[in-house]
């Protein structure tokens, strides 16, 4: 196994993480989970460090998860209220981040509606950048918490059969999971309506997966079943005839889950459209790990902040 390289500055996607580094993160998250189980879940590891959450796209869940992670490590956590900040006065992303850094931020946790925005910041500014989701591109912390939950519940990720179902084409969660699952040796099947699936040639630069529009095929023997959130606007933009038809063809309900492996685990990146991509009985059923994903998310984000949120900061402009 490759020795983990922990000298990285940024967590942009999982495409540049080795299996060793991912496992190291998951092991560290184990220790963090113990901290979270304490009566007072707080350790001084990041005392004096400042973590700024800059969410250019609303996501209370992910933001709160990061804030809890930062606080559990005793970091100062500041939320840049993008709606009220200078971004609405037309300040560029780079200038906003420059200002935050000048104000003492050590780590920027950024969510952005545009793919690649964290790469822009990472290219120009020498500050630890953790990508909390960029457009349809990547969501590495979600993928890590999915991997953590799979390992915790099923004991391994290697050789797991994982079915990801739904709007793959627009999904940053699916993309980052592909890299992480590939690194750890899982087998992935992607399934959804053809309008929401990448075409075959579009997967050339991504890890190898099976692609199908037939749910039964994807579920056959699957040990992890991950329905993705169906954005309701996909129907409005004509990619789906109706939510009803989507439900009929792709909803994970009890009967369909029964076609998967008997101990199959159900994950969902949230927030769920219960009754659309997942039935209520499955969402809250015995095989669902959706609630523990939330706790695991905090532990994984603590691990990332602990491992990467330290380095000294100086201004280096990329060539």
């Amino acid at each position: 196994m490759t020795a983990p390289s922990l000298t990285r500055r940024h967590v942009l996607d999982l495409d540049d993480f080795s299996a060793g580094e991912i496992l190291h993160i998951l092991d560290t998250a184990d220790a963090m989970k113990e901290v979270l189980a304490r009566e007072v879940p707080r350790v001084p590891a990041l005392r004096g460090r400042t973590v700024v959450t800059a969410f250019y796209e609303a996501s209370t869940r992910t933001r709160v998860s990061f804030e809890l992670a930062a606080r559990a490590l005793s970091a100062d956590c500041v939320n840049l209220n993008v709606a009220l900040s200078s971004t609405t006065k037309g300040e560029s992303l780079l200038n906003t981040v420059r200002t935050l850094r000048a104000l003492g931020a050590d780590v920027i946790v950024m969510r952005h509606s545009q793919a690649g925005a964290p790469y822009l910041v990472a290219r120009y500014l020498n500050i630890c950048m953790i990508n909390a989701g960029d457009g349809a591109h990547a969501h590495p912390t979600q993928a890590l918490l999915d991997l953590y939950t799979m390992r915790e519940r099923l004991g391994r990720v290697e050789r797991l059969k994982v079915a990801i179902i739904g709007d793959i084409r627009h999904s940053r969660v699916a993309r980052s999971n592909l890299w992480g699952l590939a690194a750890l040796g899982a087998q992935v099947a992607l399934c959804g309506p053809a309008t929401l699936l990448p075409r075959g040639p579009e997967l050339e630069l991504l890890p190898t997966v099976a692609l199908t529009t037939h749910l039964e095929e994807a579920l056959e023997g699957a040990e992890v079943v991950m329905p993705l959130r169906l954005q309701l606007e996909r129907q409005q933009s004509g990619l789906l005839p109706s939510l009803r038809e989507y439900r009929e063809l792709y909803q994970i309900d009890g009967a369909r889950l029964a076609r998967a492996h008997p101990r199959a685990l159900v994950l969902h990146p949230g927030p769920m459209n219960e009754g659309v991509e997942i039935s209520t009985e499955v969402a809250h059923g015995a095989q669902s790990a959706i609630e523990s994903q939330v706790t695991n998310g905090v532990a994984v984000r603590m691990a990332l902040l602990y491992l990467y949120g330290h380095g000294e900061v100086s201004d280096v402009r990329a060539p």
Partner: peptide, 21 residues
């Protein structure tokens, strides 16, 4: 595991591995 309580974390460059307490 005292990894999360050390006062020399930022001087180390690479973070020590932390395990469960």
């Amino acid at each position: 595991d005292i990894g999360l309580y050390r006062d020399d974390l930022s001087n180390l460059g690479v973070q020590p591995k932390v395990q469960r307490t």
